[in-house]
Design a protein around this nucleic acid. Structure first.
Lengths: 339, 339
DNA sequence: CCGCGAATTGTTAGCGCTCACAATGACCTC
DNA sequence: GAGGTCATTGTGAGCGCTAACAATTCGCGG
């Protein structure tokens, strides 16, 4: 039964009620072995009765551990970042950590710096940065912060610890699939220049073509949005009949725009032009036609990132396989397979 | 220049370097008026030099304020929740609060309770719950927690303070638009039964038809996914030619599935059947055809929710217009307008 | 030149918890 | 029954900060 009380009960209050010292209460809460069962039960009853909850600030102050991690991200309404965020939070919570997020509109040096400051004020012990732009990684490397930072999606060449999906392999899978289907060459609609993932996907595409002895056509460039895909699609439509029969688009949203532009231009998919996307957003199975794409395992990204960050925080040698990129997976659908 | 030091510098360290008391350092950091300019400058220089950062736990312990808010959400990879989350974080940060998130796979009593406990451990001063299912609201009302909770998207009838978009109006806007275009009646593919938003959209649809003297057809039901929309679309296709010329679908993802099913059945949109969705996800402009839909203002939802929660936390009388639902907006595109 | 109020700075006492260590008591062994 | 061991519990000292109050300094009128 709750008494009317202004202050929430403290450990000392509980101790008094249970007839023990505050330290014993602390032991019960901390699952210490050396507490007599009868005492433990009495303390637990007192805790229950008073509705006591341990004060996290006091605990953090005494232990010097806040058990809070920070995440900086941008474009969090996109499927990829949102999925990664979800996976990160779940993985962190499983390890007993709370996650504080800062969602940025733009990843510039100032905003990043502000975000890290904000998280620092919040007492985070470490930060995961979803920093897919190269400029963001550089900014991160410059900035001084009193906690470890792990980057996600920056590519493996980065100066800071990072976890990555093998985007290069993704580009290869997509391109190889199209070549195997008999296409002479594969065009490419790339993502923004500054994005490492875009560069890696393009590099995988280029390498695959070159390995097949094909001169890669000039890649087009979009900004991930359906609109930019639409515009690029209009341009691509002009090349149909002049050697263009297959396109690898760097993400599903742009692929959606491409599909629409092709359709409007009277180009059939996949009969006239085959299209492969990237990400496997939930919608892509229902595009017109359903989109062949490359799926990334965000859950693994989340787990690995948290695990790496905790290793750094707790001063352990990074366990697991930090350097190894996570393998993406080709998902074949109608946009490349005339049924 | 940083010396090698195991412990980060404390306020006392800074004070020593600046030749003042720790309290003066505290005053400088707290922007207290009564500090001589020369002293302030000296302190700031010392802070800079030592790379001092205030210890948030100690501060929180002394002030009894953590300046942290919690958010519980599910389905955070969907556009709506992700957008709301983004808006919430931005609004909270603007007010000087940090946001800790818990993303749930399912909103059941146990998971909700666990989430609140987790956030409580993290020391939040209040929580925003994105709890669109009725069962979740009930669970929230049951659960005891030592901080205020604001629900989002629960509908206005809830027992706990909430912020809502006027889903009923959204349903009206969509339906009225179709009737105004000359359709005799409008079919409806609703969201899951347990979702308040789904119920409100359906109610708006029904009310509009009844006001026009039309007997509402039996609504279909989906689970928000494109797949469920696809299945429903197949069923709807069977009714074409028997009075079905317009469908209001409760979200854009399902509308995508409907569009595909109709197309496969040889039904043209909008010539044979007009379709309206809900949410205005970024992709919907590029569907085949581009989708008429209802847009929600998530930024306002975020701001209002945070503002309401802070009012509750700080014991103020809720300012602004808490009871009033936020108006959604119709976005007309080709799926209802044969161009 | 004294005294008074305002501005500025310092001192002290917690905030509620954990850690290290001390104290107690029960139980054994010889 | 003395001495030792172990399990169990208590005590005291911070963790780094802010709030309240005390002390000091300064300017200025009388």
């Amino acid at each position: 039964m709750n008494h009317l009380q202004l202050r929430p009960p403290t450990m000392a209050d509980v101790a008094r009620l249970a007839g023990v010292s505050h330290q014993t209460v602390s032991r019960v809460l901390g699952d210490h072995p050396n507490v007599r069962d009868e005492t433990r039960a009495r303390v637990l009853r007192a805790i229950e009765e008073m509705g006591y909850r341990r004060n996290s600030s006091a605990r953090a102050l005494a232990t010097r551990r806040t058990r809070t991690l920070g995440v900086v991200a941008s474009s969090t309404t996109l499927y990829g970042p949102a999925s990664t965020l979800f996976a990160l939070e779940e993985a962190a919570r499983a390890k007993g950590y709370t996650v504080s997020t800062v969602s940025l509109r733009r990843l510039a040096v100032e905003t990043l710096s502000g975000a890290l400051d904000h998280l620092s004020e919040g007492g985070v012990e470490g930060v995961i940065a979803l920093a897919p732009q190269r400029s963001a990684v550089e900014a991160l490397a410059e900035l001084r912060h009193p906690f470890p930072v792990v980057a996600v999606g920056t590519g493996s060449g980065a100066e800071i610890p990072s976890v990555n999906v093998d985007q290069w392999l993704g580009g290869r899978l997509a391109t190889r699939h199209l070549l195997a289907a008999g296409h002479r060459t594969v065009w490419h609609l790339a993502g923004p220049e500054d994005w490492q993932e875009a560069a890696d996907r393009a590099a995988g595409w280029r390498a695959t073509l070159e390995a097949a002895g094909v001169e890669p056509p000039m890649p087009l460039r979009g900004d991930w949005s359906p609109l930019s895909g639409y515009r690029a699609g209009q341009e691509l439509a002009g090349w149909v009949g002049r050697g263009l029969t297959a396109v690898f688009v760097a993400n599903d949203q742009m692929a959606l725009g491409v599909l629409r532009a092709l359709r409007e231009a009277g180009v059939r998919t996949p009969q006239d032009v085959a299209v492969v996307g990237f990400d496997d957003i939930p919608e892509s199975e229902f595009f017109a036609p359903p989109l062949t794409t490359v799926r990334q395992d965000f859950a693994t990204v989340g787990k690995r990132s948290i695990s790496l960050l905790l290793d750094l925080i707790e001063g352990r040698e990074p366990s697991g396989t930090p350097g190894v990129a996570i393998e993406p997976q080709l998902v074949v659908r109608a946009s490349t397979a005339p049924d």
